[in-house]
Each structure stands twice: as C-alpha cells, then as structure tokens.
Design a binder for these strands. Structure first.
Lengths: 227, 227
DNA sequence: GAATAAGGTGTAAAATGGACACTATGTCAA
DNA sequence: TTGACATAGTGTCCATTTTACACCTTATTC
C-alpha cells in the first residue's frame, strides 16, 4: 500500500545513543548494520517513526527491537537534519540519549548484532552518527554535573569509589576523594546500606543506594545539584 | 504533483519561539493564523520543512517569510511529536528559539500579522504552542544563567541597568545592583564605551558593548559564565 | 604476621557569594 | 538659581564554599 502527499516529505527516524559504564570506560552500544548503505558498519540503534506513536515511544520501541533494552533512562537529545546525512534520500532523525545500568547492559549484547564500545574508540560509524555521538557525550557531561543522573549508569547498590570512577571517566578529570565524598554525601541523596562490597585483597566498601524520592522533594524546593 | 512513499510519513515543520525585550517585559513574537485550524488564533511562526534545506535553514526561512526577521540568534530547542498535536494529521515539529534585538524587533511588527506579547499573557495559543513556549522559557532562563547570551536581547550599546532589568525580567527575581555589576564586570566581557546614555531627569549611564571575541577565547580555556 | 591494596576520614587557607547604604550627576520646575 | 527628583555608581564585612593535602583502617593473600 502506498501513501501519497501533496508535497514531498523527509523520512523521520529516531536514533539512540545508549551509554553504559563497565567500571572503567564509558561505553556506547552500537549495532552492526545488516543492509546497505553502510552495510556491516557500526551504527546507533534506531529506525522509522510510526504514525501512531510519539517520538519517545518510537525511540523506546526501536531500542527494544534492536537491543532488547527496556525501561532505561531516555531523553531527547537533538534533531539532525543535514540534507545529505542519508545517501538514499532525505531523512531527518530525532536523536535520543539513554543511560543503562550494568545488569541491563549485559543483557543487551546477548541479543542481536549489538556490542559495547568505549566511546573513545567507537569510530567509524555509519551516517552522521559520529556527530550525534559527540553531541550526546557533550550533553552527558553537562547533565552529570548538574543533575544526579550518574546512578542510572551504576547498579542499584554501589560504592562511592564506583561513583567517583564514573564521574572521572565521563568528565575526564581526576577528582579528590575526600572532597568528592564530602560533596556527594552533603546532598543527602544517598542512603548507606547495611551491606558492604568486597572485592580484591583490601578493605570492603560501604554500599549506598540513590534515593529518588528525596531528590524529587529537594528539586521541588528549587534545589540544584552541582558537581 | 504528488509524492508517494511506501510507508506513511508524518509532516515535518519548524516553529520558532522568538523572544524580545522592551526594557520591561520579556516578549514573544506571535502571528495570527489566517487559516483553519485555529483560524485567527495566535501561533508561533513556522511552517513546513523543504527537502533541500536543513532544519536551521527552514527555521530561518519561515522566520523571515512570516515576520521579516533576519540574522537573529537562533538555536534548536526540542522536537515535539505528540500524535494528535495537529488535528488534521500527524505533524512533527522541530521547535527553535530565537533572540532578537530591539531594533529588529520593531521591524518585525511593521510587516505581517505579527505582534509582540508579554510572555506572561500570551495565551491562548494554537496547537501545542503553549507547551513549546513554556519549554523555550525554561531553556532561556537556563541559558541566560550559564552563557552570556542576554546581549542578544539588547541593543549593541547598553547600560548595566538595562542588562540587570533584563535578567530580572527573565529570571523573575530581584538582583542586588552592586553584586550584579561586580560579577558581570568581573568576567571582563564588557567594553566600556566613551558614550553615555541619557534618558529622563537623572544622571546618564555608562554605555557598554559585549565583546564576543573575548568570550570565545575564554570559552576555549574551559571558562564557565554563571550568574 | 607482614605485605598489599583500596576504603575511609579532617582541617586550614583561599575564594566566592550575599547583605547592605550612601554619594554622584544629570533634568526639570518653582 | 536652586532644590527636588530619579537613576547611576561605588566598597566592605561576614558567611559559606571550595580547594589542597596525608594518614590510618580493614580486609586479603602468602
């Protein structure tokens, strides 16, 4: 069945930049293209927007179809509309960026032709996906410093060292351990658990969890997280 | 001539939230719709994206066609894709936000069925334009505090009082005069001119201009404007 | 039980942010 | 001419925040 319009229209797609963190590097989830153009190249998961779904819904649907990921942190990033970004025809793409926890992350690769790459070594990508990735990275850095969103990249229970390593990996700077802990705990958004995390031949670390309800309450009062 | 595709496609438009400042209130530029739906309602200037232009180009073109404005500060805001945001058919709109200087602002209303409204009293708007406006306002407040962008809403030569009034109008808070001046001048981004601005029965005010080159240099060194 | 490896803690100095009130300089009208 | 008026312009002190910095703790392993 064909669809006819009075004026020509660009095709509309969504693409998702999915970030993960393995404890060392910040990673992106890419899928290997099965078809031309850019056959066998790595690309961001994404696809066409259906008429009966919002953009957010389209992004979530494509993400699940192509990577099996569900219920991730997802947010609209920017819309890319260079005239020749797709060699076949005019395609405008609404890019999203997503953050996934390590548990979900491993599930993603079990399915599909998907794999994780350290963001630093994720080239070459199909289409203008390198540009989209760069934009997403910029946004992630910004967001991480202004909103308590890092927890979306960590397990539900995590140590302060893990959190600090995440910040250091994303921001690309070394942080002072005492100052970091003082500041993070000062916001009173982390709950110390009665468990510790033991790993390696050294003292075990206190586990914490993030308290989203507390954050929502604080945010309503015009509070600003900043790191 | 008709255009046919294998799968249905949403129509793609751009809409512009154009902000201006008259010295008192923050204003938005709206146009009166000549056609159904929402005939005679006020709406954001915008229109369909052509196949041979980028999204930015489409936004600038529509802005000029509908309001006569050229060479304004323009930036992509967010893409709105609720399924029923247009009663006729599926339309996805890439929203932009623009800042215009008072000189350009007066020109805009000479043309077209366009007029300025204080942002507080801009309802009711066509489509989901109230939501788009709210999103733009939020973004403007954010941007104003983190980047020296307020100058885009002022004449090339302005006084510190004008700048302060702008910040107060947009942020909705009163600011301390001495602290404001200390901070703004401390960034060393304003150049004091050899002119003054006289108006009313009182002491004339020093005129300044913004130095964009200096700002670019500072920004490269990882400097953050914050107010 | 000694070596190892990461976890966890406090203080002092510097920089920043916020509160606060008076003088300066022009216009205008009596 | 002079005094009332209206906005321009200026500095200090205190509280808070930020930064720099080093050692002891607690587990494991051999």
């Amino acid at each position: 069945m064909l669809h006819t319009y009075k004026y020509p229209r660009p095709a509309l797609t969504v693409d998702c930049v999915v970030f993960g963190f393995d404890g060392g590097d910040l990673q992106v989830l890419l899928i290997r293209r099965a078809l031309e153009p850019f056959k066998n190249r790595w690309a961001l998961p994404g696809g066409f927007v259906h008429l009966d779904e919002t953009l957010d819904e389209a992004a979530r649907r494509e993400l699940e179809e192509e990577t099996g990921l569900r219920e991730v942190f997802l947010e609209q990033l920017h819309t890319f509309g260079a005239v020749d970004r797709d060699p076949r025809e005019r395609v405008v793409s609404v890019a999203y960026f997503a953050l996934v926890k390590p548990s979900a992350a491993t599930a993603a690769t079990d399915a599909a032709e998907a794999d994780w790459f350290p963001v630093a070594s994720a080239a070459p990508l199909a289409f203008d996906h390198a540009e989209i990735l760069a934009t997403a990275l910029e946004r992630l850095r910004d967001k991480l410093r202004r909103e308590p969103v890092g927890f979306e990249l960590l397990p539900p229970k995590f140590t302060l060292s893990q959190l600090q390593r995440l910040y250091e990996a994303v921001l690309g700077t070394a942080l002072d351990k005492r100052n970091f802990r003082k500041k993070v705990l000062g916001y009173d958004l982390l709950v110390a658990l009665k468990e510790t995390h033991r790993e390696g031949a050294h003292r075990p670390a206190q586990l914490f969890r993030f308290d989203p309800a507390k954050y929502r309450r604080l945010k309503k009062k015009g509070f600003l997280f900043e790191l």
